[in-house]
């Protein structure tokens, strides 16, 4: 990224090829919308290109990229206001509303059920689990993205996994 910042734009093509999948996975994990995730990947790299001079080269590129990706995602939902904030404690209510959906998934495999369970989580919890996945458990770097300590990130991941487990088990019982 340092070379991109200093004018060698061809190197951004290499970064795009290397990171487009995890970035897309992060967005898709958040919104379950292929087209929107495509757009957000595009927007993220647009911002990387536009603000390349701000890359200080101290941390790694991936951390910086996910930092921008979060902002892109938040900006999108702030603008479109299509995302309805969901109270973390009320996921069980939502399970009730989506009972039919859960029942339809009787034949779905574990991954599908896990994807449904992920959808039941709050944005914050889903985001921390996706960052943990795509940042390959580098909690210190995730802390830099979220602006908190490594220990705090671990606790957030622990709580999110606990809730995911609870939702998952509930889904299993319903099937």
């Amino acid at each position: 990224m340092g070379k991109v910042r200093d004018g060698d734009l061809d190197k951004l093509g290499l970064l795009f090829e290397r990171y487009k999948r995890p970035l897309y996975g992060f967005f898709y994990g958040m919104n379950k919308d292929q087209e929107l995730s495509d757009d957000l990947v595009q927007n993220t790299f647009f911002r990387i290109l536009k603000y390349r001079h701000l890359f200080r080269g101290e941390g790694d590129f991936k951390t910086w990229m996910f930092h921008i990706a979060r902002n892109v995602s938040h900006d999108h939902f702030r603008k479109t206001k299509i995302k309805v904030k969901e109270a973390v404690e009320k996921w069980e209510d939502r399970l009730g509303h989506n009972e039919n959906q859960a029942m339809d998934m009787q034949l779905a495999d574990e991954h599908q059920m896990l994807a449904i369970a992920m959808e039941k989580l709050s944005d914050e919890k889903r985001e921390i689990l996706l960052l943990s996945k795509y940042q390959e458990k580098k909690y210190k770097e995730i802390g830099e993205i979220l602006g908190c300590t490594e220990g705090a990130v671990k606790v957030k991941v622990f709580r999110a996994l606990q809730e995911l487990k609870a939702v998952y088990q509930q889904l299993e019982r319903r099937m």
Binding site: Y24, Q42, E110, L129, L161, L164
Partner: peptide
Amino acid sequence: LDDRMVAVDHGSPSLSTD
């Protein structure tokens, strides 16, 4: 649970994104 979540493949962006 975390391992299973990591194993889930969310696919890749479309060719038009490229």
